[in-house]
Amino acid sequence: MVVEKVINNNLVRSYNEDNTEVLVIGCGLGFKKKPGDVIETSLIEKIYTIQDKKTSNQLIELLSSVPNEHIQTANAIVSYAKKALDCKISDNIYISLTDHLSYAIQRYEEGINFKNALIWEIKKYYSREYKVGLEALNIIETRLNIRLPEDEAGYIALHLVGASLKVGNVMESTDMLGMIQNILQIVKYQLNIEFDEESIHYERFLTHLKFFAQRIISNKSLEDDNEELIKTIQKEYKREYKCALKIREYIESHFSKFLTDTELIYLTVHIKRIAL
């Protein structure tokens, strides 16, 4: 790769072998470089593939203003998360997590600590992401000699949830968390049951609700394709279907979204399993 434009001493714009615009970061990578110069491979720390002009501008603004050690730390956390969670994580995480991390460090240095009001729910419903968040605190301490409070593990977990489920931002991840929690309460109340949180059925239901919440927030509900099946569900699983209808009422009143019959079918089936 060759330099297309020097942004600063540590950041240059270039194009990869597919002729796609990239931002290349590395300590001293742009020092005394000019357009057309070959990029020193040994100095490359991270290559960001640019999807659109907006993303390019956001990345340039962020990477130009954030200390390089914060960027390196965020990249290390993302690398660890990808391995630990073993799932696809949107590259947008590099923007959102780097920005959050740098601001969190700034707050810490100023003696400002934001309490995470959702920490209990995050531990409970996104336990894998939360464990990654805890390890992220260790990575931060090792690299920057700063020990951020446990609340930050929860915030990092929410960023990972949003990036792995491809929702827009932490606010949407928070909405999803509230939705899952309230749906579980509806099921418990309607069926008068207590969940066996160690059971495989509970785990499957929780997984279903995560993707269900993602679809609702992203306006991508499952399409209707089986009218006969919904009739069978209504007849055979009356109590569970009635519970699913309560969930639909909740979604409509709180999120102004309409659930398809197919979504109701899947909810009913999972509710039936968990109520056994």
Rank of each mutant, 00 (worst) to 15 (best):
E129L: 02
Y202K: 04
I140A: 13
G178C: 04
E194H: 08
L259G: 05
I217K: 00
I217N: 10
S65I: 05
T262W: 05
T174I: 11
S102H: 07
K5Y: 07
Q190A: 14
N116C: 02
S221N: 15
E21F: 00
I105N: 06
Y155C: 04
L11S: 13
L62K: 12
K257P: 00
E141D: 15
V3F: 07
A74V: 01
K272T: 14
E197T: 09
V24F: 05
N219H: 15
S65K: 07
E110M: 09
L59N: 13
E69M: 11
V38I: 15
H208I: 01
Y202V: 06
A244T: 03
I233C: 01
E228A: 10
T262N: 15
Q51S: 09
E194F: 10
Q181D: 14
D196R: 11
T49D: 15
E45I: 07
R107G: 05
I60M: 15
Q185P: 00
N10S: 04
L148G: 05
F212H: 08
E129G: 03
V38F: 13
K88F: 15
N16R: 11
S42P: 03
T20N: 10
R204Y: 13
L144Y: 09
F205A: 10
Q51M: 02
V2H: 02
N226P: 13
Y189V: 07
V3S: 02
I193N: 06
K5V: 06
I89M: 04
T20D: 13
I193R: 02
L160W: 06
K242H: 15
G133Q: 05
L85I: 11
M176K: 04
R273C: 07
E109Y: 00
L59S: 06
